[in-house]
Structures are given as structure tokens and as C-alpha cells.
Amino acid sequence: MKILTCPLNGPRNIAEFTYGGQVKPMPNPTEATDQEWAHYVFYGDNHIGVVREWWMHTPSSYWFIVERHNQTDEVMRTYDPAELFDPGASPATEPVEADS
């Protein structure tokens, strides 16, 4: 059984989690062109290496960030999104670039 450590609920069976896609900066929806928005919706890196992703602990509906190697499936780190996003900011805010 694979175990993923939820920052809120601790180590849990991976079957309790839902994958939510790559973390990527969202363009401002009121200012972005259709093409910029399409690129945000459809394109991602999909590059072999360590990726930063959204995951949800499904029973508690808690969303958090996972840093994972997408070839070995090794999880480097899991943490609350407050580390990347200012909780008081508008949804169009870009994530704070940590050491990448």
C-alpha cells in the first residue's frame, strides 16, 4: 500500500486522495487573452522530474501541495498551500516562487 502524508491528517492510504493537477500560475481571467487562457487550461510541463502538484484528502476535502518525482513516484514533501499562496489574496495571484 502506498502512503501519502497529508499535512492535516497525517500518513494515509493513497486511495484516500484525489490528484488535482500541476500547480501553475493562473493568468488574470479578466485580462488574459483566449489563447493565454487556453494555454493555462490545457498545457503543462509534463517533464520528467520533481513536480509540484495539487492533491486533496478526499474524506476531509482538504487541498494541499505535493512535491513528487513523476518517474520514481517518490514524494519529496507535502505542505499546506499557504506556503505558496497568500490566503488573503485574490484568486488571480501568482504563486510565490520557492526554491525550484
Binding site: 500500500m1 484525489t18 490528484y19 513523476n70 518517474q71 513516484d73
Partner: peptide, 13 residues
Amino acid sequence: DPYPLYGTRSTLE
């Protein structure tokens, strides 16, 4: 599989 991966190892899940 339920999430993306470039690995081809079978999983128990």
C-alpha cells in the same frame, strides 16, 4: 492510473 507517472512499474493498488 489515478494520477500521472512516467514509471512502468505495476502497483499493488
